[in-house]
Design a binder for these strands. Structure first.
Length: 547
RNA sequence: GCGCCUGUAGCUCAGUGGAUAGAGCAUCGGCCUCCGGAGCCGAGGGUCGGAGGUUCGAAUCCUCUCAGGCGCGCCA
């Protein structure tokens, strides 16, 4: 649709001898009675041409070729040009949609560019909580969206299995293990206190028996840390699978140390003169690249900071040939962006290669009151619990109907209680309804072998025309969402499409004695189903035939 | 104190610098002889936090300001 208008405008502008702007604004008019698509291009040209916008618009309209695509082209308001498509154009476009499916719906704007999207990456020191779920839903949908739009996408989970936090989990488990054996052992001060730590300890006891009964943590640390991290990782993977999110690669932080990549990256920076030693620690000159202060990469006790492995990690990503890197982080990490950009520049790369998307906090409510969570006491509501209580589809959809950078209030009661009027059901219901229409049609002996052969010109009611136009605008919505890297736009499109479908359904019977009309309407339903499924698939939400 | 995010209908939230700012929920009133009523139709509800500015045009961009959240460690 948009392409047709774009071409017409370019043709007219060229005929007028005007320069064609790099970007021609094309959008929906204020009111659908005004037309299907509109452009304010005459208004933006008015200034440079020093002419009245309406006059320019009239000139443009006069030069648009009359080839049957448009039923009406009008100049309106201060100088808008409104286009209304002809029914012949709508019919033939709908046929193309039905015949080509994804080929019509999606466009290759990514052009095979390699992008890596790193998301969730929660420390394997506890189960995933709801905030991780938001990151998972957004990261998963963004991956699907870019992949559908022609990017070559790799989904990566970075495992922080090195460093103090992993050891701390190991020691927490060790303490619980001793407790199970009836031995006094001081629980680490900042240790992990959740019930899951006890479960891991029980499993560790099952494996090691009383082998570490008399051992200290120096001796038993490796076993307990490895065991605990391994088990946590398994739980995290199961949770993500249940949530319907998959990853292509799982990158271990510890692996970066073992392969010498951290040392190599630091040596590289040192050779470039971006590191210096002070008070026994090794510092990165972040201030030379726009950060507020210099950052420690190796502490005076010889341990590396998390930042050190992150340097190696991002160097590795860029070196493996990605055109674009996307990191999806919790908003509480925003202070970290500057130093990472600084180091990317220090390594000699373009800092624009990295885009960090921040996912804002999720506050969990139950019936209007905040659910208290204390990480310290190990009390927090996990993603698994929420999934079991309200379901994976609803949970994902709630995350995907908001911009990721807005704070989110997740009310468990509202998510459940409103379930029958939940937007995700509204969309899924449209799909299920279409399924049962087809079941009914088949019982009546009608089947739809070639939907693209139907005669759509007989579908001329306002409800049908609106529905067809909405279907044909999917590529526009899809492309805009992909360009902006904003999967949540798809959810709003799908809600509107479902609305138009329900309106159509309530007004018109699909299966009737009129065979031609039945075939045309069945074909229209088939097109709606195709688009609904495509959109839901991108969101990672299921499209059941029955609910 | 400095930095990032947010502020739009009673509530939860949409809104590529464009025409009279939208949706769902909630409230009120209608619609099932017939393909799924998890649906449809209608009504009410707004100083887009506030003040300036930029321009043909601002919820959107800039400055200031108020409010909430988060972050400013040789933590991750």
């Amino acid at each position: 649709m948009k392409t047709a208008v774009q071409k017409a405008l370019e043709h007219a502008l060229a005929a007028l001898g005007m320069e064609i702007p790099a970007h021609i604004e094309i959008g929906s008019p204020k009111d659908e009675s005004m037309g299907d698509l509109a452009t304010p291009v005459a208004m933006s040209l008015a200034k440079t041409l020093k002419r009245k916008p309406r006059d320019i618009a009239e000139d443009i309209v006069r030069r648009i070729p009359k080839d049957g695509i448009f039923e009406k082209i009008e100049v309106a308001g201060a100088g808008f040009i409104n286009f209304t498509f002809s029914s012949a154009f709508l019919s033939s476009s709908l046929k193309t949609l039905l015949k080509e499916k994804a080929g019509f719906l999606r466009s290759d704007i990514g052009k095979g560019r390699k992008v890596q999207i790193e998301f969730v990456s929660a420390n394997p020191t506890g189960p995933l909580h709801l905030g991780h779920g938001r990151g998972a839903a957004v990261g998963g949908a963004l991956s699907n969206l870019l992949s559908a739009a022609g990017w070559s996408v790799e989904r990566e989970y970075y495992i922080n299995d090195a460093g103090r936090q992993a050891r701390l989990l190991g020691e927490s488990v060790f303490a619980r293990y001793k407790e199970l054996l009836g031995i006094e052992y001081p629980f680490p001060e900042d240790g992990y206190r959740g019930q899951y730590v006890v479960s891991i300890a029980e499993a560790a006891k099952g494996e090691a028996g009383s082998r570490y009964k008399d051992a200290g943590f120096e001796e038993a640390g490796d076993f307990f840390t490895d065991f605990a991290v391994g088990m946590m990782l398994k739980v995290i993977k199961e949770d993500l699978q249940a949530f319907g999110i998959r990853f292509d690669t799982w990158r271990s932080e510890r692996g970066l140390y073992e392969n010498g990549e951290v040392a190599a990256a630091l040596d590289y920076l040192k050779a470039k003169g971006h590191l210096y030693e002070e008070e026994g620690a090794l510092w990165f000159k972040a201030t030379a690249f726009g950060d507020e202060k210099d950052r420690v990469v190796r502490k005076s006790n010889g341990e590396h900071t998390y930042f050190a492995s992150d340097i190696a990690y991002h160097k590795k990503k860029i070196d493996s040939g990605f055109d674009e890197l996307i990191d999806i982080w919790g908003a509480d990490h925003h202070g970290y962006i500057r130093r990472l950009e600084a180091v990317i520049e220090a390594l000699g790369y373009d800092r624009k290669k990295l885009r960090v998307f921040l996912i804002q906090m999720v506050s969990l409510m139950r019936g209007g009151t905040a659910v208290q969570m204390s990480k310290r006491a190990g009390e927090f509501v996990t993603l698994r619990e929420v999934m079991e209580e309200v379901g994976a589809d609803i949970t994902k959809f709630i995350f995907l109907t908001r911009r990721p950078d807005s704070h989110l209030e997740f009310d468990l009661e509202a998510a459940k209680a409103a379930s029958s009027e939940n937007p995700v059901y509204y969309i899924q219901y449209a799909n299920a309804r279409i399924h049962s229409i087809f079941v009914h049609a088949r019982e009546k002996g009608m089947d739809l072998a070639h939907p693209e052969d139907a005669d759509f010109s007989i579908l001329s009611s306002p409800e049908e025309t609106r529905l067809i136009k909405k279907l044909l605008s999917y590529p526009m919505a899809f492309e805009a969402a992909a360009r902006a890297h904003e999967p949540h736009r798809i959810t709003f499109y799908l809600q509107e499409l479902a609305t138009f479908f329900h309106q159509f359904y309530n007004k018109h019977r699909v299966v009737t004695d009129d065979e031609g009309l039945t075939l045309a309407r069945l074909s229209l339903c088939e097109a709606v189903r195709t688009v609904l499924k495509d959109g839901l698939e991108i969101l990672g939400v299921t499209a059941p035939d029955r609910m």
